[in-house]
Amino acid sequence: MAHDTLAGVFSPVLTPFDKNLAIDANLFVKFCSWILTQGAGLAVFGTNSEANSLTVGEKLELLARLIEAELPPDKMMPGTGACALPDAVALCQAAAKAKTAAVLMLPPFYYKSVSEDGLFAFYAEAIQRVGDQALKVCLYHIPQVSGVPIPLTLIERLVKAYPSTVVGIKDSGGDFVYSKALLEALPSFRTFCGSEKFLLETMRHGGAGCISAMANIHPGAIVNLYETRTTPEADAKQQALNQMRKAYESVAMIPALKRTVAEYGKAPAFKTMRPPLTELADEDWDGLKTNLNDLSLKMPNLDKILA
């Protein structure tokens, strides 16, 4: 997928584990297939994928399994950010070889208050070591989690140095002021909001789409808003999406999303979390389930595809 067509809705796909905390790769591939049937792409190894609880080897194996299953690489945006430069390079190389739409790349996140020059050097070194024109990088701005913001000045430097490689960003900062500054300063840059609650506003300012945790449970509804964003019904659809997200704001997001998939998809393995994350408590699920019933959540054919 050329960067000028890199757009739409992507899901940071949840990762199922078995009782021994090993990845259930077959179930993972099936779940990715379901998300694709709903019109969304696959931002595998994202925050809600528990990416930083996965080894580089596990990520490489899962990406290979997706390709072997003939899922379309132009619908994939695997996370390749890492604290260790060689790890980031290995993941980016695999994604470029597979010709994925792009990669989603966190900054190195252990050291805090690093200089802009240091961050630039990390991204530049990774791009140069990969040395593949097929590599398309979407930066990942989530400073409340990573502790390392990606300032506009750094983005401008990277775009100037690598205009055909550094092509977009996922903005999960939660502050639309930052997104708007990006959209105004770099109108051809592919800016994705990190929550569907900003989808309509992002698109109205020239954005590329949305990469959202909620695309694990109702990707079709988010895709529908993306596709009908210029219609009179768009604002009402945005409000409906906001209500669904609100249902998850009082519980731990990743365990709640995984429990939802486990229950609606009849796939208990999805409940399992790798420590230090823990499963959603039954009482929290009971309250969430009531809200989801009130909101008429539908996950069409999920149980059939995961069977």
Score class of each variant (00 low, 15 high):
5 T>K: 13
7 A>N: 02
9 V>G: 02
9 V>W: 03
13 V>Q: 08
15 T>L: 07
16 P>A: 02
19 K>G: 02
21 L>N: 03
29 V>C: 09
30 K>E: 09
39 G>K: 05
43 A>C: 13
46 G>W: 04
49 S>E: 05
49 S>H: 03
51 A>G: 12
52 N>R: 12
52 N>H: 15
54 L>C: 08
58 E>P: 01
59 K>A: 09
61 E>H: 06
67 I>K: 07
67 I>C: 07
79 G>P: 09
80 T>L: 13
81 G>R: 05
86 P>K: 04
90 A>R: 15
91 L>A: 08
101 A>D: 12
102 A>Q: 00
102 A>T: 01
103 V>G: 10
105 M>A: 12
106 L>Y: 15
110 Y>L: 03
112 K>A: 13
114 V>A: 14
114 V>R: 11
117 D>Y: 01
121 A>W: 07
124 A>D: 12
125 E>N: 13
125 E>V: 00
128 Q>H: 08
131 G>P: 01
132 D>H: 09
139 L>D: 12
140 Y>N: 07
143 P>K: 04
147 G>M: 05
147 G>V: 05
153 T>C: 03
157 R>C: 06
164 S>A: 15
166 V>C: 02
174 G>Y: 10
177 V>Q: 14
185 A>T: 11
188 S>L: 14
188 S>A: 15
189 F>I: 05
190 R>P: 08
191 T>Q: 03
193 C>E: 05
195 S>M: 04
195 S>P: 00
196 E>K: 04
196 E>P: 05
200 L>E: 03
204 R>N: 15
206 G>N: 04
210 C>W: 09
210 C>E: 11
211 I>K: 02
213 A>M: 02
214 M>R: 05
215 A>N: 01
218 H>Y: 13
221 A>L: 15
223 V>D: 02
229 R>A: 15
231 T>S: 14
239 Q>G: 06
240 A>N: 06
247 A>S: 11
250 S>N: 07
260 T>M: 07
261 V>N: 05
263 E>V: 13
267 A>L: 09
274 R>Y: 00
277 L>E: 07
277 L>P: 00
280 L>Y: 03
283 E>Q: 12
283 E>A: 14
286 D>L: 04
288 L>C: 11
290 T>Y: 09
292 L>D: 03
292 L>E: 02
293 N>C: 04
293 N>F: 03
300 P>G: 07
304 K>V: 15
304 K>M: 13
